[in-house]
Design a protein around this nucleic acid. Structure first.
Lengths: 161, 161
DNA sequence: CTTGACAGGTTCTTTTTCGGAACCCATTGT
DNA sequence: ACAATGGGTTCCGAAAAAGAACCTGTCAAG
């Protein structure tokens, strides 16, 4: 499979990965969530090659995850900000952070803690069912074809996620 | 920054990405969650180059996300199964799936639906605070240094996620 | 006892992508 | 006139991926 075909696959995971599935993109987005907005600051904080950064920012902008907002004219300068689509990646970030905290931390514990502003506790995310509110664990979901499935799959009945 | 340094960064996101942050790994894991276990089946379903697949399976096994389980002797054959660490990636999958459903589906809707076994509804995951149960939205958390932070950061006070 | 099939890899060659450094361009401050 | 600043682009050599062929045990058939 070619990487460019990924966004046309009948799988939401593959389609998501066509945007965030490479080595740098999620780290760029981490910085966005930390309110980093300018080219130079991304570069310094990440130590990323400049042309790779330019490419990732352009792809994220084209994908509607970031948008360029001018913050001065003459010389025109623009900064990158998360769109609603980008902010919606927060659960993805949280899931990866929590997994890293649990499984990748050394014996001393995780390097950074997250505290829920509303309740004041150090917390992690719990995934619950949008309909019944119960916690979702591995494989608590079954899978069936949806309205956007290709006709060929609808005819056959398929192992899908 | 070099890719190999990623797992030593004081950031759980970076550490998670050192394992799942490349083009193929999460697609391999998608298949694992669909109970694909054998080399040939991964290859056929994903259309991945064989040596890339061998490399990813080895890295995931070394990382403790998969384990090799023999299913016959002479010739010895082994299959790959998710460990507890691997099963714990389910929330990451769900987050990416839900984001793709919401933002990457065509006008007809998502290609695949997930139904919660327990309640029978088509559902998505809601992220809630482990302490107070409230839903977590973008940037509902603040960040502070944890026990595993490097001493240099502890001295300085740092913008971290 | 040679041939073939099967699962699970490894090796080879060609194309993409990445890391690092240098260069470009408009504007402003000195 | 000259350097600095922000935001890139260009060029090169190194690394990784795609695609295809080849290798290795083991069993089964002819």
């Amino acid at each position: 499979m070619r990487w460019e075909e990924l966004d046309r696959q009948p799988c939401s995971l593959a389609r998501s990965l066509s945007i965030v599935g490479d080595r740098w993109t999620l780290l760029v987005l981490r910085e966005c969530f930390l309110r980093v907005r300018r080219f130079e600051e991304f570069e310094q904080r990440l130590g990323i090659a400049r042309h790779v950064l330019a490419d990732r920012l352009k792809k994220l902008t084209d994908a509607g995850v970031l948008r360029k907002v001018p913050y001065q004219e003459r010389p025109r300068r623009e900064e990158y900000r998360l769109t609603e689509k980008g902010l919606d990646l927060y659960p993805v970030m949280l899931s990866l952070l929590d997994w890293g905290d649990k499984w990748m931390a050394g014996p001393e514990g995780p390097p950074v803690l997250r505290r829920h502003k509303a309740c004041g506790h150090v917390a992690h995310a719990v995934h619950t069912c949008s309909e019944c509110g119960e916690e979702l664990k591995a494989r608590d979901m079954t899978v069936e074809l949806g309205p956007g499935a290709p006709a060929a799959l609808k005819a056959a009945g398929v192992k899908g996620e």
